[in-house]
Design a protein around this nucleic acid. Structure first.
Lengths: 147, 147
DNA sequence: TATTGTTATACTCTATAACTATA
DNA sequence: TATAGTTATAGAGTATAACAATA
């Protein structure tokens, strides 16, 4: 029997799906703008802000950091260098494996990261305009998208 | 009287809002990954892909292009240079103002942009997993967010 | 031998400032 | 004089390849 699934992968999406794609693109663009702007307010680049935020959750070896940021390990060296020069991050030896260097946020780094989170207006303000029911619907739809 | 508005700007967001913010961040990250990957499949950088996509909607003077991309006009010169070298974009004189150069996608540029759009899996596939009602709810919530 | 982090290199994107050709 | 586009310059992110230290 024919499947009732909406938007099969190899046919054209329906107008509703197209509009949602368009809207997601706009949200993504605004979110990014807002993130870069918030980072700049703290004299950080986007990459630096993302790395610092990751390290505020837990210290990570350089290699792992590269995996999380989805970039080459060689890039992480420079980003950590610049954050370390500002005292926001430090490199610690791993006693279990002397090849490994574990990057960790300093107290100052965590302070800056907190300020960064609080600067993120867009992710919060427009949400304030939604009713609780709308936010629940949005949450469920987003969960569904992320599988 | 106390306002019943959810998430006033200068207080901590409630857990629901926090989760939605988290989810939006993930969607944004995945969307971006997907976009960069699709661009790379066509030997384009993200910036080149965005500029080319804009020009497929309508030709634009360099200055306007910079405004749309939210970057300095001097950057647009290089991006258009690289796309022009590959025959995907061309610069046309503006008869009304000889200072202006209008950038336009070539037929080949439009072909590449079409392939690019079709490569954007993430924006479409996860949506296919949502019911029509969920997609409507998502659309309305996104519209609400964008004001 | 394999792995971790780094260095060296080259390219792109970015902003700033100075230049040119028009207006 | 003001504006459109460019050039020149410098900093940052990115990938690739080669390297040292360690496993």
């Amino acid at each position: 029997m024919a499947s009732p699934t909406p938007t099969p992968l190899n046919t054209r999406p329906d107008p509703l799906t197209l509009e949602v794609v368009e809207l997601i693109g706009e949200v993504v663009a605004r979110f990014h703008e807002d993130y870069e702007e918030a980072a700049a307010e703290h004299a950080l680049t986007g990459a630096q802000a993302r790395l610092l935020s990751l390290l505020c959750l837990e210290p990570l070896p350089m290699r792992r950091l590269a995996q999380r940021l989805k970039c080459e390990p060689s890039n992480v060296t420079g980003i950590v260098d610049r954050l370390e020069a500002r005292g926001l991050v430090e490199r610690r030896p791993d006693p279990a494996d002397r090849r490994v260097k574990v990057a960790a946020a300093t107290a100052e780094g965590r302070r800056v990261a907190r300020g960064l989170r609080e600067s993120l207006r867009f992710a919060r303000e427009p949400l304030a305009g939604l009713s609780e029911a709308e936010r629940v619907a949005l949450r469920d739809a987003l969960r569904g998208m992320l599988g």
